[in-house]
């Protein structure tokens, strides 16, 4: 089972990573959701002692690891929070840029940087040669 869980979590993680690299912002968020699912699965797997639900443990049977369940719950909730937030950012991006493409965003940023660089003179002011010869 160790291998199975590792494989499953890694596969989900890999697909998520691939999605984050795509051009479509909705798919990027989907990728983040997958990565978070993968992390939760790892959390659950890290306490992989199958057993009864840890409710009213009698002591006869070893219950499943309750601590990782608590951690997984927390992680799931946090995953929900970041997903909602990411989606909101994406919605704002779409509303402002009228596009859901990462490329569009990058281009916008590149233009912004270029404008900044152009609007200001270069930092290093090179001396004119003749001026340097014997100034004043």
């Amino acid at each position: 089972m160790t291998l199975v869980f590792a494989l499953a979590a890694a596969t989900i993680f890999g697909f998520g990573a691939y999605l984050v690299l795509t051009n479509d912002l909705v798919r990027v968020v989907a990728g983040m959701v997958l990565i978070s699912q993968s992390a939760v699965l790892v959390v659950i797997a890290s306490g992989l002692t199958r057993g009864a639900a840890p409710i009213l443990p009698t002591g006869d049977e070893r219950p499943s690891d309750a601590l990782v369940q608590a951690m997984a719950l927390t992680a799931i909730v946090i995953g929900l929070a970041v997903t909602a937030l990411l989606l909101a950012i994406v919605a704002r991006v779409r509303a402002t840029l009228h596009s859901l493409e990462v490329r569009e965003l990058a281009r916008d940023e590149a233009e912004h940087t270029a404008e900044i660089e152009q609007s200001q003179e270069p930092q290093l002011e090179e001396l004119d040669r003749d001026e340097a010869e014997d100034e004043q």
């Binding site: 590792a6 890694a10 890999g14 990573a17 993968s38 797997a45």
Partner: peptide, 22 residues
């Protein structure tokens, strides 16, 4: 490139997870 990076990321995650779970 993108699938390749996905595979690299997945493989690395696999190593870490499997290594720890083992």
């Amino acid at each position: 490139r993108d699938p390749l990076i996905g595979v690299v990321a997945g493989a690395a995650a696999f190593l870490v997870i499997w290594g720890a779970l083992s």
